[in-house]
Every structure is written in C-alpha cells, then in structure tokens.
Design a protein around this nucleic acid. Sequence first.
RNA 1: GGUUCUGUGGCCGAGUGGCUAGGCUGAGCUCUGCAAAAGCUCCUACAGCGGUUCGAAUCCGCUCGGAACCUCCA
Length: 504
Amino acid sequence: MSLKVYNSLSRKKEDFKSITEGHVGMYVCGPTVSGESHLGHARPYVTFDVIHRYLIYLNYKVRYVRNITDAGHFEEEGREAEDKIAKKALLERLEPMELVQKYTNLFHWAMNEFNTIPPSIEPTATGHIVEQIVMIEKIIKAGYAYEANGSVYFDVEKYNTDFSQIGMPYGILSGRNLEDQLDTTRELDNQEEKRNKADFALWKNAPPEHIMRWPSPWGEGFPGWHIECSAMSNKYLGEQFDIHGGGMDLQFPHHECEIAQSAVCNHKTMAKYWIHNNMITINGRKMGKSYNNVIKLSEMFTGEHPLLEQAYHPMTIRFFILQSHYRSTLDFGNEALKGSEKAMKRLWEAYQVLLKLDENQDTQAVVLEGEENIDAKVNTLLAEFDEFMNDDFNTAKVLASMFELVPIINGIQDKHIPLNVLKTETLSLLKHKLKVYIEDIFGLKQEKQGGDKLESVLKLLISLRKEAKSKKDFVTSDKIRNELTNLGVLLKDDKSGETTYTIQ
RNA sequence: GGUUCUGUGGCCGAGUGGCUAGGCUGAGCUCUGCAAAAGCUCCUACAGCGGUUCGAAUCCGCUCGGAACCUCCA
C-alpha cells in the first residue's frame, strides 16, 4: 500500500506521487518571530516533523524548507502600552533585528526540545527582499498588480477573471468565491489605496516612523506577508514542488494569496499537495494571541502558568500531539496532558524492556494454549504501522497498535508469556520496527538522566536494600525505598527479583 | 451574514455502513513482606429527532450545541 495524503486543494485523500522520483520538496510556513512561540505553534512543527521523518523512512530525499517571518510591522509582546512613551526614545526600543533574533533563538530552542529535525533550509524574509521585489515586478509587468502611494497591491479581481478560465480561480484552496468575499470583507484601515477590498499588499510604503524599511522601485518600504513564501519557495524548491504545509488558519488568505502570486509568475499551482494541520484548542477555543489564551512553550516546560497544574516535558507534548490525527482539533487540558505523560512513560518503559529481551534465551518453555497466535498477532500489528501511516499519517492508530504490543512485551518480561511464543524473526522485527517508529519516525526520546555516577550510586543503594530484604530487615529496605521516592527515584521490584529504577 | 468543519464513555481521542480502537482515570483480582510496577477482568459512548438500509456512531434530512476562516495568526 502506498502513501495517501489528504490534499486540502482537492479535499480528498490522494495517492502521493512526488514530482521527481525519489525526491520530495516540502515547504512549511514557519513562525512570525515577533513573539514567543506558544503551545499552538507546537502542532504544525511536530506534525510536519513526523511527515518529514516518515518521508525519509520511505526513502525519499527530502528538501524541507521552513521560513522565518522576520519582516513586517512588529510589536514585541506586551510592549504596545510602553510604545507611546518610548516613541521618542528610539534607543530604548529593541532594535528590530534584535527582537527577531531573540525570538528566533527561542523558537529554535523549543524546536530542539521537541526533538524536531531542523529544516534543510530556513530562509528569512529579510534575507530575501531582493527576490520578493523581483517577483513583485514580475507581477506588475504581467498586469496583476498596481502601485498606489508607494505601496503595491495585487489585483485580485483581474486575477480571478483571467485565471478562472484555466481552472485556478481565486479561492481555489479555501473554497470561497470572490463575490462572497467582496460583500463580507470587513472595513479596514488604509483601504482607500486599494482598487478592491479583496486586494492584498505585495509591498507596503513605510511611514517615517517605521523602523524596518528597504529601498525598492516604489520607494522605501517593506514586503507584504504573503509574497515571502511565494518568493522563497520558488527560489529553493522551484516553480512547482510537492508539499506545502501549514496551519489551517493560514489557508485563507495566506496560502490563497501565495497560490495567486505564484500562478501569475509561473502559470501553475505552486504545490501539488497542500497539507494543513488543525488547531490546538483550549476550552474548545483556538489558542491564539487575539483570544488571550496562549500558554507559551517555555511556560509549558516549567509549569508556570495559571492554567497549568504542573510542568510538561516536551516529549509529553510531542506524544500528546501524536495521539490525535493532525487534521482534528486537539483540546488542551491538564488531565489530557497528564494522561499523555503516563502513556508515554508506559510505552517507553515497555520499549526499554523489549530491547533487553534476549532472542537466544530458553527455547524450551511450553507454549500454552491460546498463546500460539501471539506471534501472528504481533506480526499483524507491526505490519499495520506502515498501513496506518500511509493512510494520511495516522499516528494515533499506530500508537494504539503499539499499546496492544505493550502487554505482550511486559507479559514476556513477567514470564506470563514465554519468550519463544515469538519466532526469532518476529522478535527482531518487533525490536527493529519499534525502534524505527518510536525513535526515528515519531521522534520520541528520553534522556538518560543522572549519568553514570548516579547510576552506580543507585546500584549500590539497590544492592544494600536487597541485602536488607534478604535478612527481612524491612525497616531498612523500606527506608531506602521511601527516601528515594521522596527524591523522585522510583524503585520497582520485578518478578525475577531484580530491581530497576526510574527518575521522575 | 458568507464559507467550511465538528459534536464519541469521567477526561483526551481513533474509527466512518456490520469486526474490542487506544491512552488516562475509576473498581476488582493476581503477583508482592508491604508498596510500586506489571498482568488479567470490568464499568461508563457514539448530541437529539426522523429517514435510507437486512444492518448506522458511520450515509441523508431537520433541530440543538461547539469551532475555524472571512483581520494578524500555526
């Protein structure tokens, strides 16, 4: 079975076939670095990280481009009120590139915490002003943009009229028609420069106080938001590439505008497959600045936020995201996150147990009735991993299958189930497939905490406790265990008399 | 108002015409010196009302509720 992806453009699941065999070009809209990333931002970058990893698993050579939007009009978070005071003292304000750097660094830090593979190219809007200007000139020349007072606007109506004839009307992606929009678009500032309410800016004239500005054929100004993605994707991935991704909230107008701009320049839809992730919600509502309900990633990791009952590890959040399908909304909640934390732990521990199972150990054990089909069951579950991922990256189903394997693994460890119910090939396939899926595709990891020294110290304590236990000195043995528990080290006695530990 | 999506058990969340999703929580049991962990078993579902069908959580209609987009947004 081959990979199927849901294409927002056709609103159908389609067979994935890359434009160039063996290669995939993928562009994902990156963050606007005018503020710190919040939980909502984790969704697309984890989702597309998994897609990226899965494509690699399928042996594609992937060029993954994710931009940094660092141009436009920026206000630092929470600075708006201050701004009036600081207006005359420019030096007191953060230099725009300083601000951009600060939040870019924070973004990279968070992405690293999430164990995402960095994109192949991470272009910035400010680094591609020239490309954007060239593209705007091309659009003007083609007759689909006009200048007004040093700003340049895209002529949506003309585009729609002409490109509808070749099956690419404005609104093709979001499924809306232009007439509706003309009636419903809200009144905004500076609309008088536009010929039409639906037109959008390609270049904005910079008012004197605007700090970020670049010279252009139309005077000093800054690029519009949409043009950067068209310019940069075109530069690094060509006129048409395989996947364009981003949050569903970018579908309109951002991606719609991208399509229009690129279509004027290249006469084709820029991307073959459009993949959109759904939103993370909080109390059923999209997490977003304008709703005032954001929890920043740094707050998630430390637990310092009124809505958080505790800190959540980046891997817990990653797991949480993987437990749902990327096209469904995912509702934040402490209970849900705690559930993910436990589940992740359970899965990981079973995985560790599995890795230690020795395929050469006793083959004499008697396989009981009802156990002879376990081997087949394991093979079926493992085969389904690929099947589920191929069905539009259904990570939730893969995880469910993994959890069906967990009791089998633990059962073998506890010796309820003899190891030899699994064929040698099955066991090694199980190990291999879980490693590939858990670590390589899902990108889950768990740092070895404490290091070697702590490990030897704990081993010592464990052996002392074992000694005490053998003398039935439960006061001492319980003291060791309880004190360690207080320190966040949990001891577990397994069936064979061995004791293992986990650090919280 | 327009466009689109959605409503699953205490919580999160798969599924989408017939087959146990899964995780977390809760209850019981087994194991254990006691715990923890693990294993086993169980409970609580498909918003409501109609229709199509041999059969619907799944398709259709209506009602009610929720959301996203139409402004910056992941």
